[in-house]
Design a protein around this nucleic acid. Sequence first.
DNA 1: CACTTGACCTGTCCGC
DNA 2: TGCGGACAGGTCAAGT
Length: 293
Amino acid sequence: MPELPEVETIRLGLAQLLPGKRITAAEASWPKSFPNEPAVVAVHLIGARVTAVRRRAKVLIIELDTLYSLVIHLKMTGQLVLRGSTVDFGAGHPSDSLVGELPDKSTRVIIQFDDGSKLFFNDQRKFGWMRLLPTVDVEALDFFKTVGPEPLSDDLSAQDFIQRIRRRPGSTIKATLLDQTVIAGVGNIYADESLFGAKIHPAKRVNEVSDERLSDLYRELRAVLHLSIQKGGSTDKNYVDAEGKQGSYLSFAKAYKRAGKPCANCGAIIIKIRVAGRGTHVCPNCQGEASTY
DNA sequence: CACTTGACCTGTCCGC
DNA sequence: TGCGGACAGGTCAAGT
């Protein structure tokens, strides 16, 4: 569920909170969530100071002054919440937080810092992971070697976007958007939202979509990602930011999780179907029926 | 080769 | 009330 805007929101928070802190301890109550050898952790993580927090696609990278990095993928239900920092979180009240006392029963890893603060890696479904790697090896991970360009990059033009989408002519447009090797960071929410905005049926094959429509999709995708980052991401069930707070994008969503409700453009009832093995929200009027293409 | 499905997991919701 | 099953969806491995 954390997609590009959610991971970016967490990154923005952690980038404010973590740099300069020194790690004093790390423990994993679910070893698969943090499978590194204890000896490697002892040498390259304990005592390390955080220098930067970066993001690539849906992956967070916490860089350390030991020239190692913590690489983290939250998958569907992962959370990274900092508690007990001497840095003030600002105006938010504790009641804004979706998570209560930590650790809780979904806490898999706890990273402790020299100022007494703790970073909690919670993950209800245990699909997420973090691993410690030499920083120079991070980009050599298979995922980073094959992942597509950042959709919000200034370097990605509409023409570049269209060219990459067309690498999968026989696939549905939604499956292609979700393919991380085509474009990075898009998941189920923003696939549905951007396809709605571009008035493209998710089940339509790429080779049946015009360049003009794909150009609309490029613009809509960037717009919904920008808006969601501005709203602190989408909280459906589990997602919270680095302070434990929910995001509010879903109250602005036009398709995702709106089955049975009227389309904001035409008033037709949004339906939920299955495309690329995922629950898919579509306006049958604005986006048309797949069979008519 | 291109594309789809299953596995990894837990919690929630629905029907009986 | 309890229970079985469907469902939620990111990514990789395995299957068609």
